[in-house]
Measured scan of single mutants.
Amino acid sequence: KELVLVLYDYQEKSPREVTVKKGDILTLLNSTNKDAWKVEVDDRQGFIPAAYLKKL
């Protein structure tokens, strides 16, 4: 599985998104959309803007 590093805090703005903190390391589920990547956070799945993430 692929991991990503969170570069900036992000507060979810819709039910399809998830809230993350800078420095979190998350499982990347889908990065086919260049604008928003799907990740898993504490058994929740949701989207975060790709600009907030860096592949490890």
Results as ranks from 00 to 15, higher is better:
residue 29 L to Y: 03
residue 7 L to D: 02
residue 55 K to N: 07
residue 1 K to Y: 12
residue 1 K to R: 14
residue 13 K to S: 10
residue 11 Q to E: 13
residue 20 V to A: 13
residue 7 L to C: 08
residue 20 V to K: 00
residue 48 I to Y: 01
residue 12 E to G: 15
residue 7 L to S: 01
residue 15 P to D: 12
residue 56 L to D: 02
residue 13 K to W: 06
residue 26 L to P: 01
residue 5 L to H: 02
residue 11 Q to W: 14
residue 7 L to H: 01
residue 22 K to F: 05
residue 48 I to N: 01
residue 27 T to K: 13
residue 37 W to K: 00
residue 44 R to F: 09
residue 5 L to Q: 07
residue 39 V to C: 04
residue 19 T to H: 05
residue 2 E to L: 13
residue 31 S to K: 05
residue 11 Q to I: 15
residue 20 V to C: 08
residue 10 Y to L: 01
residue 37 W to F: 04
residue 38 K to T: 09
residue 22 K to E: 06
residue 46 G to Q: 06
residue 41 V to D: 05
residue 5 L to P: 00
residue 41 V to T: 13
residue 17 E to Y: 07
residue 13 K to D: 06
residue 41 V to F: 10
residue 45 Q to D: 07
residue 10 Y to T: 01
residue 32 T to G: 10
residue 15 P to S: 12
residue 53 L to W: 00
residue 15 P to R: 09
residue 16 R to L: 14
residue 44 R to H: 07
residue 18 V to H: 03
residue 48 I to T: 02
residue 14 S to N: 14
residue 54 K to G: 05
residue 2 E to R: 13
residue 32 T to L: 10
residue 1 K to W: 11
residue 35 D to L: 13
residue 41 V to R: 08
residue 22 K to T: 05
residue 6 V to E: 00
residue 19 T to F: 05
residue 23 G to I: 02
residue 33 N to S: 11
residue 39 V to Y: 01
residue 31 S to W: 09
residue 41 V to Y: 09
residue 12 E to I: 13
residue 21 K to G: 04
residue 42 D to G: 15
residue 1 K to V: 12
residue 31 S to L: 04
residue 27 T to C: 11
residue 15 P to L: 08
residue 10 Y to K: 00
residue 29 L to I: 14
residue 31 S to Y: 07
residue 49 P to A: 04
residue 21 K to Y: 09
residue 43 D to T: 10
residue 47 F to Q: 04
residue 54 K to Q: 13
residue 6 V to I: 04
residue 24 D to P: 00
residue 21 K to W: 07
residue 30 N to P: 04
residue 14 S to K: 07
residue 21 K to T: 07
residue 18 V to L: 14
residue 49 P to C: 07
residue 38 K to A: 10
residue 35 D to K: 12
residue 41 V to K: 14
residue 24 D to L: 08
residue 34 K to C: 14
residue 16 R to V: 12
residue 15 P to E: 12
residue 35 D to Y: 15
residue 52 Y to L: 11
residue 44 R to Y: 08
residue 14 S to C: 10
residue 56 L to S: 02
residue 14 S to R: 07
residue 21 K to P: 01
residue 8 Y to H: 13
residue 42 D to Y: 08
residue 43 D to L: 09
residue 49 P to Y: 05
residue 50 A to R: 11
residue 24 D to C: 09
residue 40 E to M: 14
residue 24 D to A: 11
residue 9 D to C: 05
residue 32 T to N: 13
residue 39 V to S: 00
residue 35 D to F: 14
residue 29 L to D: 00
residue 4 V to N: 00
residue 47 F to L: 07
residue 26 L to C: 14
residue 1 K to S: 10
residue 51 A to R: 14
residue 23 G to T: 03
residue 14 S to I: 05
residue 22 K to H: 06
residue 27 T to F: 11
residue 1 K to G: 10
residue 33 N to D: 13
residue 23 G to M: 03
residue 21 K to D: 02
residue 53 L to Y: 00
residue 56 L to N: 00
residue 9 D to R: 01
residue 55 K to C: 11
residue 9 D to Y: 05
residue 37 W to S: 01
residue 2 E to F: 11
residue 37 W to L: 02
residue 38 K to V: 15
residue 41 V to G: 06
residue 1 K to C: 14
residue 10 Y to A: 01
residue 13 K to T: 13
residue 26 L to M: 04
residue 4 V to D: 00
residue 34 K to T: 11
residue 32 T to K: 11
residue 27 T to E: 07
residue 44 R to L: 06
residue 30 N to R: 05
residue 10 Y to C: 03
residue 35 D to E: 13
residue 49 P to S: 04
residue 46 G to L: 15
residue 35 D to Q: 10
residue 50 A to H: 05
residue 18 V to D: 01
residue 49 P to F: 06
residue 45 Q to R: 09
residue 47 F to D: 06
residue 44 R to G: 07
residue 39 V to M: 02
residue 34 K to I: 11
residue 25 I to R: 04
residue 9 D to H: 04
residue 5 L to Y: 09
residue 24 D to Q: 15
residue 4 V to L: 03
residue 40 E to T: 08
residue 6 V to L: 03
residue 32 T to H: 12
residue 24 D to R: 09
residue 52 Y to S: 07
residue 50 A to Q: 06
residue 50 A to K: 09
residue 17 E to T: 06
residue 2 E to H: 11
residue 51 A to C: 15
residue 33 N to Q: 10
residue 5 L to G: 00
residue 19 T to P: 03
residue 39 V to K: 01
residue 54 K to E: 14
residue 25 I to F: 04
residue 39 V to F: 02
residue 44 R to C: 07
residue 40 E to A: 12
residue 40 E to Q: 15
residue 20 V to Q: 00
residue 6 V to N: 00
residue 36 A to S: 14
residue 52 Y to F: 13
residue 23 G to V: 02
residue 1 K to A: 11
residue 27 T to W: 12
residue 13 K to R: 13
residue 22 K to R: 13
residue 7 L to M: 09
residue 28 L to W: 01
residue 15 P to V: 09
residue 15 P to F: 08
residue 28 L to G: 01
residue 38 K to L: 15
residue 19 T to W: 04
residue 21 K to N: 07
residue 2 E to M: 13
residue 34 K to R: 11
residue 24 D to E: 12
residue 23 G to D: 04
residue 23 G to A: 01
residue 24 D to N: 08
residue 50 A to W: 03
